[in-house]
Design a protein around this nucleic acid. Sequence first.
DNA 1: GTCAATAATTTTCTCGAGAAAATTATTATT
DNA 2: AATAATAATTTTCTCGAGAAAATTATTGAC
Lengths: 225, 225
Amino acid sequence: MSLTEQIYVDLRSAIAEGRYAPGQKLKAEHIAKQLDVSGGTVREALNRLLSDGLVEVADRRGFTVAPFSVDDLRDITRARLLIEVECVRDAVAHGDDRWEASVVAAYHHLEMLARQRGGTDDWHELELRNRAFHAALVSGCQSPSLIGFHHQLFTRHYRYRRYALQDRGIVSGARKDHAALLRAVTERNVETATEIIRAHILRTQESSEALVAAFVSESSMTRKS
Amino acid sequence: MSLTEQIYVDLRSAIAEGRYAPGQKLKAEHIAKQLDVSGGTVREALNRLLSDGLVEVADRRGFTVAPFSVDDLRDITRARLLIEVECVRDAVAHGDDRWEASVVAAYHHLEMLARQRGGTDDWHELELRNRAFHAALVSGCQSPSLIGFHHQLFTRHYRYRRYALQDRGIVSGARKDHAALLRAVTERNVETATEIIRAHILRTQESSEALVAAFVSESSMTRKS
DNA sequence: GTCAATAATTTTCTCGAGAAAATTATTATT
DNA sequence: AATAATAATTTTCTCGAGAAAATTATTGAC
């Protein structure tokens, strides 16, 4: 893996996990010094991050972390309702055996961790496996474009997930959703699968919106100081 | 406008217009010499082009022009049927007065040129205005994400448009579609507008697929020499 | 004290060179 | 002649420096 790509994935994680605040400037030279690479390399990674919608660029005034707002969350949710639901519909309808097996594998991998004591042992690993499950599910869709769009939306949504996860009901609900989704997949029940996904996306949105709103207004307070 | 951005838009046009062949390698240093800029600058533009799906990158083996195939065309068409139709539905339902006026303006600008003798006078300008009309139409949609996806799909589809345009019926049909679309917009007739767009996308696909297939197989012949 | 003009600093952008890796050409071996 | 190993070439990647532009700080006028 080239250095540029390494920096690219590192920065993507850092932004998605909130280690860089929304709206914050991403000064190439500054980041370069921290990571002990050249400014040009960081610059290249930053340009690549534009694809993911996590970073914005303004001519002659550099890169910034994409804003974080209730509107943005609503936008992501809405696009997911269109695209992710369609991806799942298509995957369940047309995915082949290999795909179905990969979904079973991803589900099992996720469930193994979720089954552990308490559940919230290794947050980061849990999110990784959750992401892998959803990616596997969607990968059966026959449209590379839609899969790509879904991937971007999922990445952008990552910053908002932590707020949904504070809702106890969402966490346990998600686990039930995953089980139900797996059954719908193996039974090739398109209607059930799409309905679960749709409900899942909507519920996540509803439970996180208030918390996101609170965070946004709070951070705009502190920003004034 | 920074040099990087200039190179970026230039390369985007060049690829969309087919001046770089699908699959062709895009050697930064080589392009840099032609445009009389540094390799790093071209490299940055190339990285930015990844967002548009016109260029692909493979680690340690550089950038290539995205492949061109019937499958790709079908994929684009399918994604457009989902996303563009939804964008138009939303725009017609929720676009404000300013939006409606911008659609009228874009339509008029396009129609002024189309009305000219013969029609196919200045191809390039016609395409520019056609693109502006569609962009105006979609800009009324309340979802920035969906607008962004539509923009990417439209850009990627540009390479295939020339084949649809060889069909006489498509060209005159498009003009009628635009007129009907404008009426549906001013009358706020959501059902009619979405139906026209859907039919328009499908017809374009149908009339170009055979020609694209012919071109692909032909170019794979010559490639063997 | 407020505002505008100027100066100092920081940041972004662009370049050309060199190291690392991949590709192509050449030679050697069967 | 076909394959494999080696050498030569090209290409990609990475760096650090300097020019251009933007931001911040300072000064001066009112």
